[in-house]
Amino acid sequence: MVVSSLSLSWISMAISSKLNLPQVTSISPCNNVSFSAETSSKEESHSQRRPLLLGLAALTTALLPASSLFAQEIPENYRAFVDFSDGYSYVYPSDWRDFDFRGHDSAFKDRYLQLQNVRVRFIPTDKNDIHDLGPMEEVISNLVKHVYAAPNQRANIYDMQERTENGKHYYTFEYQLTSPNYSSTSFATIAIGNGRYYTLVVAANERRWTRVRDKLKVVADSFKLLDI
């Protein structure tokens, strides 16, 4: 048998459409791919190994651009979540853990403070861009007051920002929801692409907001759409 063992130690997970990328600064697959072979001739070895090497090259080419790109952009003490099948990515604090949040596609929370979390959801839309919804102030005000806020909650919007990356537009805003017994503050980022209306919300208890605000703003600003 030409190839008796093949080690791909540079891939630490099964190939999938959703990746959880740790903090890494470089990937060197050539140093971590090992082969062992027994051949009867150099010609036979070369002819039989060539298709395998070509396959590895194609796999490396497919995975490295995306993983290297996100590795360069991951801030210290954060991890990246990349969903190629649903077309989005973002970073979250590295000590948070994933959990199921009803009606959402992905979610992570603080291991000790469950109300400190990030979650992403999307719904189908016939709009092509976030600008198609209307002026930013009007869109955000209606969303916070009539969608995010419960009937017994008072909504306050503190800040609204727009950014554009690779031709895609994003609205990020800070808002507070206050009820008689509880108050929370959040950042939200919304965007439209791939025939979907995406929403990322990262929140914390109001009492902790001043301590974690900057940390959570990194999460909100990191949300990006991927073409699918």
Rank of each mutant, 00 (worst) to 15 (best):
I74T: 15
T61L: 15
H169S: 12
D159S: 11
E38V: 14
Y90I: 03
E162R: 11
R208D: 12
K42T: 12
E174N: 00
A57L: 12
Y197E: 00
R207Q: 13
V24A: 14
P93M: 00
E162H: 06
A58M: 09
K145F: 03
S17K: 09
F70G: 00
D98N: 15
R50T: 15
A220D: 04
L52C: 05
R163K: 13
V219N: 05
S106T: 05
P151E: 12
Y88T: 08
S40D: 07
D126W: 07
L56S: 01
R49S: 14
L113H: 08
A58S: 07
V147S: 11
P135D: 09
W209R: 10
V3S: 03
E174Y: 03
D95Q: 09
T199C: 08
Y182F: 15
R121Q: 11
L59D: 02
D129V: 01
D100H: 13
S106R: 01
Y148R: 06
C30E: 10
Y92E: 01
G134H: 02
S85M: 08
L53N: 08
L115K: 11
N194I: 06
W96N: 09
R111Q: 12
Y171G: 05
V218M: 00
F122E: 03
H169V: 14
E76M: 02
I123W: 07
L69C: 00
S4L: 05
S34C: 08
Y90A: 10
I15Q: 10
E137I: 08
L59M: 13
K224M: 02
A58D: 07
T172N: 03
F35M: 13
Q72V: 09
I123F: 07
R97T: 10
L177D: 04
D100R: 12
A62N: 03
S12R: 11
L226G: 08
K127L: 15
R102Q: 13
Y90S: 09
V120E: 04
Y158M: 00
S183R: 14
Y92Q: 07
A107M: 05
M160A: 05
N156W: 02
V24P: 02
S67D: 07
K224D: 05
D83K: 02
A107F: 06
K109Y: 05
P151C: 01
D132W: 00
T39D: 00
I140F: 08
F223A: 03
D95L: 08
T199D: 07
F84M: 11
S45L: 14
V201L: 09
R163E: 13
P135V: 05
N152R: 11
D132S: 14
P93I: 01
N31F: 11
N128F: 02
E76T: 15
N128K: 14
S85L: 11
S12I: 05
T178Q: 15
N31G: 11
T185H: 06
V218G: 03
S12V: 08
A150H: 02
Y198C: 04
S47A: 11
N194A: 04
T199R: 08
S184R: 15
A107N: 03
L69G: 04
S5L: 09
F223P: 04
T125K: 01
Q153G: 06
V219T: 09
D83I: 05
L133T: 07
R119V: 02
R196Y: 00
S179C: 11
S85W: 06
Y158C: 02
N117P: 02
N128A: 13
S7P: 05
N205I: 10
F108T: 00
S89Y: 03
R102S: 14
E137G: 01
G195L: 01
T61E: 15
P180C: 06
S7L: 13
G87L: 08
